[in-house]
Design a protein around this nucleic acid. Sequence first.
DNA 1: GTGAAAGCGCTAACAT
DNA 2: ATGTTAGCGCTTTCAC
Lengths: 335, 335
Amino acid sequence: MDSIYELARRAGVAPSTVSKALRDDPRISVATRARVQALASEAGFTVNAAAQSLTTRRTLTIGVIVSDYADPYNGLLMRGIEAAAMAAGYQLLVSSAHETGVREVDIARTFRQRRVDGIIIVASHVSESHEHLDPRIPVVLVAEKPALVPDRPLVSCLIVEDEAGARTMTQHLLTLGHRQIGYVAIGRASLASDARRAGYEDALRQAGIEPDPRLVVVPNRRDMAGVGAEGVQLLLPQRPTAIFFYNDLAAIGGLRAVIDRGLRVPEQISIAGFDDLEISQLVTPPLTTMAQPRLDMGRMAAERLLAMIGGDDDRTPMTAVCTLMVRRSTAPPPD
Amino acid sequence: MDSIYELARRAGVAPSTVSKALRDDPRISVATRARVQALASEAGFTVNAAAQSLTTRRTLTIGVIVSDYADPYNGLLMRGIEAAAMAAGYQLLVSSAHETGVREVDIARTFRQRRVDGIIIVASHVSESHEHLDPRIPVVLVAEKPALVPDRPLVSCLIVEDEAGARTMTQHLLTLGHRQIGYVAIGRASLASDARRAGYEDALRQAGIEPDPRLVVVPNRRDMAGVGAEGVQLLLPQRPTAIFFYNDLAAIGGLRAVIDRGLRVPEQISIAGFDDLEISQLVTPPLTTMAQPRLDMGRMAAERLLAMIGGDDDRTPMTAVCTLMVRRSTAPPPD
DNA sequence: GTGAAAGCGCTAACAT
DNA sequence: ATGTTAGCGCTTTCAC
């Protein structure tokens, strides 16, 4: 029993009738629909999706490229994407672009081969991957810079307000009285890191402070916690009273390093991050950070993609608004 | 250009020749193989996976059921699974069983419908899900109790040494001199939590201490950090000098709660977890915990599944050995 | 070394 | 309300 023909035989109807009945097509009488469905579930029969999509030309599959499964930033995003996708009857084919640059091309190729109905690229330093993608299928880029998003049909993006968020955070630190504020960027080319730095410098200038380039460091370490630790090491000689890190993971690594040097947070030095990971409110002291509505972002991305799959081509970038979460890692500077 | 027929026409050969050429079948001359492949990549052509799997009866797809994308426990596991799967040319169709119990049936159904070649169920309190699965396709259960794993063909499992790990951890605390050791379990039925409790009690008995039921608490909160916090609240009146938590997330929540009550860790109270999440070495103080080789576990699970897909039916449970990571959250009790 | 033909399991027109 | 037929795009015998 693994085709509709067999079921049709058993039910004493035509295959096409079974096909329709199984999809609850109203052209089939309620009675036979029920009968066929009962027979199917009794026999544990499910239509073969491959055969189905061969005729319908839709796979009901969304390809998701995620930077790394182990990056806690992605979790809620995935949850949001899945929620919206599932609600619309779509499944997720997931691939991570973890490290390996080469692999992106492969991912793109597999997605093509599988004829996914659309693609979501999450939080990538993977920006180039969409260049390998089939231009006929819709793509949504999450947390990508508009500058990197080609303005072409079926390509949409969701922007995080990095610059504005960083400005807000820096203003928070300025308001507390800090004047020596460091920024820890990340090494590999990251427009998000650049944008956050721009917001940081902008806030300083608005406050009449000329940004001191020695207060901006770009660690070489590849892991985020390492970036934070190295950032602290590079920055401490400049005697900052507050350090703003590219993201929470770096901030938590930095926090660890600062504490290990015997400094007290926030009494002697303030620490701030960006992202608001679930863990950030649990570290000691709880981290002041900019929250990103990641669950909603995932949902928005998936919904936009579904709209594009449905034929809509609204490409206006979506925007995720960040919210300042003031916790205990920031306080006025020591006198 | 979206079928092999068109390509065949352009190449001036038969479709079946293209089919073979594209798969590098040695029966086709090197010359035509090269020509066809060149033509294909030039035209951006890829074979339709649906059509392909309709004939071959393989989808090269592994269905993965993961408890929750946002659970940091799963990240490395997924990474391991993907690494092994990709290496063998398989893709991952991922679904989370986040909360909603009902959904498992749906996931099972979609996996059936899509004819995935095998299924990996990760870290589930989702244990019943395999009951809905097609008995003809291989399944690997990760971090499941053998007791819950039906002994039937094509069902394999990877066991975490919960009891032994918990015993080791408790012995560590005993060795430090603790006598009043609390255990924070989790509310929802969890054999892992039960097993860890058993190991904990066993170690106590071995040390000549009769386990005190009042030192074991089962919080009601649903989120892990909340479980930890509530556990602390329930346990503190019993004046434990050390608390062993079901897992790291709970331990970190508990750590937060203990510190918020003005207690110093580890000077006044020791804290221990289980799992060794990436974050656990970054909290303050860094957490003493049992490490699970999660990356390898993922890899092992996938490799076993691939073996089963390949026809092997070795069902002997695989075992993940845990390692004690002594960090700064544990120390001798105060006098 | 290459080709012709049948069939994988389904859906979509088009009958009836 | 149901049945017939012709594909969807591929692989697989089996011929040549």
